[in-house]
Design a protein around this nucleic acid. Sequence first.
DNA 1: GACGATGATTGCGG
DNA 2: CCGCAATCATCGTC
Length: 459
Amino acid sequence: MDDQTRMIAGLVGIGGLSQADVGDPDSVRKQSLGQPQQDIGDILQQIMAITDESLDEAQARCWPEEAPARWAGADEPAEGGGAGGGAEGALPLNFQYRKHALNCHRMKPALFSVLCEIKEKTVLSIRGVQDEDPPDPQIMRLDNMLLAEGVSGPEKGGGSAAAAAAAAAAGGSPNDGSIEHSDYRAKLAQIRQIYHSELEKYEQACSEFTNHVMNLLREQSRTRPISPKEIERMVAIIHRKFSSIQMQLKQSTLKTSRHYYPRFLDARRKRRNFNKQATEVLNEYFYSHLSNPYPSEEAKEELAKKCAITVSQVSNWFGNKRIRYKKNIGKFQEEANLYAVKTAVDAASVSAQASQASSPATPNSVLSMLSSGSVSGAGSDGSPWWCVVFLQADTLLPATHLMGGYEELPETCTPHRLGFAGQHQPFPSFPRSPHSDTKPAQQHLSNVTAPHTCPCPTL
DNA sequence: GACGATGATTGCGG
DNA sequence: CCGCAATCATCGTC
């Protein structure tokens, strides 16, 4: 007997009577062959004894060498026997004879009622069994982990979720597939493939086996009482048994995946500095929005596109920049000047083109641009933009030197005289979570009124 | 190899 | 979920 048959025997035994009680013709035979008055108690005892037999013993008894000859005289069976389906087709011919003989036997109703009685006892004993089988939390946890690892779930462009995320986090150009990444992806793809193929096999086996048992039970239900509910329960039992196999598969897949993942994590740590152009774009935005260096989601996306990096990298960059700028303003003065002038020059040239000015943008024309308030990204709180740039950046000493310095500004425009020093100091803290380029900044700026906290050097 | 710069991660608070 | 702050880990320069 193969393992599968043995398993069926075991499982069928749980739901009621063992397969042996169906196959065993002894009690019926005795009655039909000369002991018609046999006590119902005897039959019951025999049946009870049969249920204790192993399938091997039962089969040995059911399939003696001479059986075909002995049963050859039985009524001719109807072809196929109706129910039973595929399972029945596989049964030996002599077994079908017996089944037919059993089904047609005049004592069958009596036997059936006895079986019902036994059944009732059995059902009572299993009535407490939980009918609903909630999803196994352990399997669910494994599923979630496999999903997170990128082993299960949808495959994104040949890579896993983890690999894709990490590849994005690795920075650089989109096709920055380092050797480590491609290696990891290849391994993960391999694991995915094996996992899915094994899962498919598992599901197929589980479904085949379930069908097999269901057919068997349906077929048996002609001989003994089996309710659909019991069949359902049996299916649940089978699934429970199979789920341990599923668990093993998932656990081992996860283990394999994680064997490679730490190496990948190391690889993920390897970073690339952003290229010069990307850094320039980011710095330009930062210094031109110094009053409120919190790009909106759209702005981040735009910047990400321009720099060929991810939005989260943009967020990281701004987070780092804000904190480092804040910590050491002095260090960033030169940079701030550079970008302030650059921004101004750009704006000036744009404006000059627009107004068809014949002279090129010069520091002085920049100055006039600044005075006219045509530079975007600053002064959104209603104050002159240059106050924001000059004073927030705390930088424009060198910058003004380039442009001739504050001396060239009207005296009323010097920062502290204008009283912007305190208002526009972005530190010790930037406005919190502005999510927009204007409103929160206005709120923040209007709340800051203490000039003595201004980190700007006294001019 | 030391050191500063820099991108990424983590833990925490709002 | 976002931003801050601290920290890690690597890069780039000397």
